[in-house]
Amino acid sequence: MKKNSLLFLAGVIIVLALGFLMPWLLRNPFYFFAGYVVLQYVTIATGWNILGGYAGYINFGAAGFFGAGVYLSAFLFTTFGLPLPLCILAAAIVGAILGVLMGYLTLRIQGVYFAIATLGLVVVLETIVHNISGLGGASGMAVYGPRPPAWSPGPSQYNFTVMVVIAVASVALARWVEISWIGRGLRAVRASEDAAECSGVPTLRLKLVACALSGAVLAAAGAPYPFYTSFVEPVTAFSLIIGLNAIAMPLIGGTRTWVGPVIGALLLASVQQIATVTISSELNILFVGAVLIAFVAFAPGGISDLFGRNKGRARP
């Protein structure tokens, strides 16, 4: 256990170092533009998995949390000139609140209702944003991002580095949840809620914690987005492909550990980034949808389960 944590820490340091150094080593800004999206999906998949994978509560509304993060940070930056790190923090807090609210309304009943309610969250939030003229309504709003600090060569590179930090923080959070008593309790909830409750696990409170953490990560993933695109509109902020990828990536990679969503996101998002050059976004969705069905039907354990069976983690 200790050894694994040290290895993980070493990995974190290497990835962070690369995140800060790469912009000076690679010239072509396209890599950072594409890399940003891949890392954004690593964050989204990781955040989704805290609730969907560990606790087994499917959230179809990832785009709702993401979009809330996008709009909150766009609003805070354009109106109050809040610096980006504070925008991200604010988005995470609002995402957590949204998650708890959502969970509180639906988690006392069965998982189906939670899933249906999350579908609604996207529609409701999108409807609200549509109707607020201060946020640009249906036509959207332009966001002129901050000038990148001196340690970064340009805006795409700066956004990339920011996303590296968010992704690493999210993965570390998910790993911490997984190996802590929270993760064990959530997995017990996933297996049998009654048995967990009768073993002393406060199931409702634990699920609310998972909702809050998951919501926070999903919203944080959206916070830098306005600066990445310089323009936000409801259709892209609450995009279907985000909700779809959030589910498909962990399911393809494997939902039981933090590694699964990371693998799934790296794979699927890279394929999508390469493919968008050649195929339409519709074919992209069709592809992800078909892959999702195939995995649900034939390999519910995901890739990490196909290669190397899950070895017992805790030994006496």
């Binding site: 998982g111 899933a115 399911l251 969705i285 078909a290 069905i293 649900v296 039907a297």
Partner: peptide, 14 residues
């Protein structure tokens, strides 16, 4: 239930 929800979600997108 959760897997079947996901299956139908994928199906509706397709």
């Amino acid at each position: 239930v959760l897997q079947s929800l996901t299956l139908f979600f994928g199906l509706s997108l397709v």
